[in-house]
Design a protein around this nucleic acid. Sequence first.
DNA 1: TATATTTGCAACTAAATAGTTGCTTATTTT
DNA 2: AAAATAAGCAACTATTTAGTTGCAAATATA
Lengths: 116, 116
Amino acid sequence: MRETNRDIFQAIADPTRRAIITLVALQAMTPNAIAEHFDTSRQAVSKHLKVLTECELVKQEQSGREIYYTLQLNKMKEFDKWIAQFRKLWETRFNQLDDVLLTMSANKQTLKNKKK
Amino acid sequence: MRETNRDIFQAIADPTRRAIITLVALQAMTPNAIAEHFDTSRQAVSKHLKVLTECELVKQEQSGREIYYTLQLNKMKEFDKWIAQFRKLWETRFNQLDDVLLTMSANKQTLKNKKK
DNA sequence: TATATTTGCAACTAAATAGTTGCTTATTTT
DNA sequence: AAAATAAGCAACTATTTAGTTGCAAATATA
């Protein structure tokens, strides 16, 4: 397992990790508690948590012998930043295309009616 | 290589594929043209395009013997949908936490002053 | 203090992935 | 019609990844 320079895109590629992210977004949880939500073993979850920790998507908070994991929302923003460049496209260029298609469709109707 | 039900999050895990997405977001491109932008072979790019096509992030448009690939912005919206649940958190809960911290800090000041 | 619990770490296996090479098909150009 | 170009497909290799098993360290409980 690679330990440095792990990126968030690789981290969220795994569906179990995405589910873990959703879980710890709502409240801090221990590996055992997290594992109980899935069909995987504690060790498997632990490995996923390691990946998420390495890319700083989650943070550990020790409390006695338990370790609580919480989501680092700030890191999640990096994904949002990436998607933002495309959001710009579908909010401008794409809406314009939709308009064109709607207009064409409307014109078709008009033409059909005219043919009658 | 898996051919059905490919996951879009898995698709964007690869940095080359993300770069391809950025390229074809701006204009439709052929595999050869795309490959010229990278240090990889045409075949490697072709494989990435296959992955992106399978999960419908890009669409093919044949024109003679050339195939142009374009980004499917609608599919990209699914990423936005996923991140939206967390955006809600950092726009509300997180700001509230900021408020709490600010208030605590302000109260501390007040208490300090009262103690005098 | 002895035992139980929580967790991380290391070694291993099986499966998936990225990339290469060689080939075929279809279309364009000469 | 022949040669060149664009691109997909299949087989193969090397690397990465997810998951398992066993173990050690630290903390809590009886």
